[in-house]
Every structure is written in structure tokens, then in C-alpha cells.
Simulated scan of single mutants.
Amino acid sequence: MTPSAIFGKGRYADVNGINLYYETHGAGRPLVLLHGGLGSGEMFGAILPTLAAHHQVVLVDLQGHGRTADIDRPLDVTLMADDIAALIEHIGLRKPDVVGFSLGGGVALQVAIRHPHLVDRVVSASAQIRRDAIYAEMLAQQAQVSAAAAEFMKDTPMYELYQRVAPRPEDFPRLLDKIGTAMEKDYDYTEEVRGLQVPTLIVAADADMAPPSHFVEVFKLLDGGLRDGGWAGESRPKGGHALAILPGLTHYNLADSPLFAAVTLAFLDRRS
């Protein structure tokens, strides 16, 4: 069976004004898994078997991505976090963990901020909390994302995936416009992160879209990196938070990496 053959056998949930596509893989403690921008749940094909061997993985296609059609509202991580909260309640998940990468990492963080009573632990990977943390050359590239770029993306995996699975394949330029607009918007979630009550693992590649120092800064907001942890871990961050900078990776291959799966499982399965 090819990796793509395990996908596309999910269902839809009419929640929060959107018809949200999701699939369920494996068994065990529930884990909601959220993809990056211009992707879908299929982007986790390389690590899904590892995660599903330990957890019931609920793989979601976010607004306008994959098999979830777009609706008439902006692409915004806070709105998409509300979608995920509504999905958790709709399918009756009891305190699932939420794991997200890039766009999905931002959504996962917002689920923890906005709906802490619904989730147990969160892993937020490659998701900076301030726009100005992104390298200047990357911000310049993001400024070029619009419907006009659709023609130039026809040979990319993102375009191929969208054409293969989207309910309305002709909406790809619209998705690019919406993502471009979202990336232009300034944001700073420093204060929201500082008050986070859900145990959270911050993950980044050592050559990510923002420097490792930014993710260390996020960890400091969570009471991390401020003192020695103690022989028995008694002085680790009070909220159970953690940080992982993964070696030899970039923003573009972190979600495929067994290292990402390994640190995610290590964090989620440490319940003491």
C-alpha cells in the first residue's frame, strides 16, 4: 500500500460554520494532528504510522486546505482554533493532545490559549509567535504569495495535492490570495503565550523560518530556560512546558522527520 492510499477515507463534521474534513488512524489516547499552510493531513504520511502506533490520530484538513472547502472568512489561526475546539466537542474527544506544524502549530497554540479546558497537552512546531521573528528574506518571499503565483506553482507538490483532493480544485488561486493576506498581517501573541496553562512543547528546526533564539524566547515566556532544572527535574518549568530544537532540519522537512515524531511522543507520553 502506498502512503497516499491510507488517506481519503475520512468524514466531514459541520462545525463552527465550516464543513471540516478529518480522518482517524490508530488507537489509544486521542491526538489531533494539524498540517502546515498549502498542505493537508497527507503531509504527515512519513510519520503518521509512528504516531498512530501509539495514539488515535485525528488528522484534520484546515479551512480551505486539502479536502476542506474554503468559506467566506479570512484564514486566521484564532478562527481555525475555534474550528478545532468545535470538532473536539462534536466527535466527543476527551481531553485530546493537539499537535501542529507551521500554520497548524499556530492553530494548536491558539487552541491551548482559547480552549484550555478541552485539551491535555500541545505540541507547536515551527510556529513563531511574532511576525517580526521571521527572517527578513522570508518576509519578502511571503509578500509574493498571491493568486498571481498560481501559474508558477503548477509543478509543485502543493498544487498537485490540491488538484487531487480539493472539493473545488479551481480555488487554488483563492487560497494563495488568502494565505498571502494572512501572512501580511502583523501579530504578536507574547502575552497570550505568557499566560498559557496547557503543558506545551515548542519545537523548531535548527534552520527554521525564524532563528532558534526566537523559540528559546518563547520557552522563556513559559518559565523555561531560566535556571538549572535540578537533579530530579524539580526546577523545570512550572507548567510542564518543554523545548526541542531539532538538528539538521529546516522548516521544509521537519514534518517528515522521525525526530519530530520521537520528541512529540516523548512529550505526550510523559504524564508524571
Rank of each mutant, 00 (worst) to 15 (best):
H35K: 06
E191H: 12
H90W: 14
E184H: 05
T50I: 06
I129Y: 06
D206L: 01
D132V: 07
N253M: 03
Q110Y: 05
P212S: 09
S40I: 15
P173R: 10
A182H: 04
A150M: 02
E160L: 12
V216H: 08
I18E: 11
E191N: 13
A242Y: 00
A204L: 14
P211F: 12
R270H: 13
R11C: 14
G8K: 07
D82W: 04
S4D: 15
Y21S: 07
A69T: 13
V218A: 14
D177L: 06
M43H: 11
D132Q: 02
L246E: 04
A86D: 04
K185S: 09
M138Y: 08
T264R: 02
S146R: 07
E23D: 10
E137H: 10
P247V: 03
Y252F: 05
I245M: 02
S126W: 09
S126I: 03
E42R: 08
N19G: 15
G225T: 14
V32C: 00
K154T: 13
I129Q: 01
F7T: 05
G92W: 06
G17F: 13
L33F: 02
L38P: 00
G195L: 09
L87K: 01
E89I: 15
R94H: 08
G36T: 15
I179D: 06
A136V: 06
G37A: 15
V107C: 03
L139F: 06
G195I: 09
I179C: 03
V193H: 11
L109W: 06
T190R: 04
S4T: 15
I91M: 01
A81D: 10
M138F: 08
E137N: 11
L196V: 08
A46I: 09
G229M: 06
G240Y: 11
Y21I: 12
V57Q: 05
R164I: 07
R67D: 00
D269H: 09
L259F: 05
Y21M: 05
A148T: 11
K220H: 05
A266Y: 05
L175M: 15
A46Y: 13
L109Q: 14
L222A: 04
A127N: 09
E192Q: 11
H214I: 12
R164W: 14
I91V: 08
R194N: 03
L34E: 01
L59E: 00
L221P: 00
L33I: 02
Q56T: 06
G17A: 09
D61V: 12
A127H: 02
D269K: 14
E217W: 03
I18V: 15
V57L: 12
V119A: 00
A69K: 06
R164D: 07
N16R: 04
P212T: 13
V119D: 00
G240D: 08
